[in-house]
Amino acid sequence: MSSFLTIKQAAEILGVSTKTVRRWDQNGKISSIRTPGGHRRFKSNELLNNTTKASATIGYARINPNQSEEQLNQQVFKLQTYCQERGWNCEIINDCGSGVDYSSKGLIRLIKLICHHKLERLVLSHKDRLLTLGADLVFTLCEIFGVEVVIINSTDEVALEDDLTNDLQDIIQLFNTRVYGSRNSHNTHLVKQLQQITKSLSS
Rank of each mutant, 00 (worst) to 15 (best):
I152L: 15
N89P: 08
L190P: 01
L130H: 08
R109K: 12
H116S: 14
Q71M: 04
A56W: 03
D156V: 08
L190G: 02
T132N: 11
V191F: 10
E91A: 14
E120N: 15
K105V: 11
I111L: 09
R62D: 00
I92W: 03
A159E: 11
F139Y: 12
F77N: 14
I58C: 04
D136V: 00
C96H: 05
V150L: 11
S185G: 09
E69F: 02
E157I: 11
Y82T: 06
H189P: 00
H116E: 15
T155N: 06
Q74P: 01
V147C: 00
L124F: 00
Q67D: 12
I197K: 15
T165W: 04
K127Q: 10
V191R: 04
S103V: 05
N184Y: 04
C142M: 02
G59M: 09
G106V: 09
V149R: 07
N73H: 07
D156N: 13
A56Q: 11
L137H: 14
F145S: 00
N184V: 08
E120F: 08
L133I: 15
L110D: 12
Q195A: 06
R121A: 03
L160C: 09
I108G: 07
Q196M: 08
D162P: 00
H116L: 07
K112Q: 13
H117T: 11
I111C: 02
N64L: 03
Q71P: 00
K105M: 05
E161K: 13
V76N: 10
H116W: 11
K118W: 06
S185Y: 13
L137E: 13
N184A: 07
G99I: 03
A135G: 05
T57W: 00
G99M: 08
F145I: 03
I92R: 00
A135R: 02
F145Y: 15
N166K: 05
F175W: 11
I93E: 03
H186D: 10
C90G: 07
G181F: 05
C83I: 04
L194N: 05
K118R: 14
N94Q: 13
L79M: 02
I152F: 05
N176T: 14
I197H: 12
S185C: 10
V147P: 02
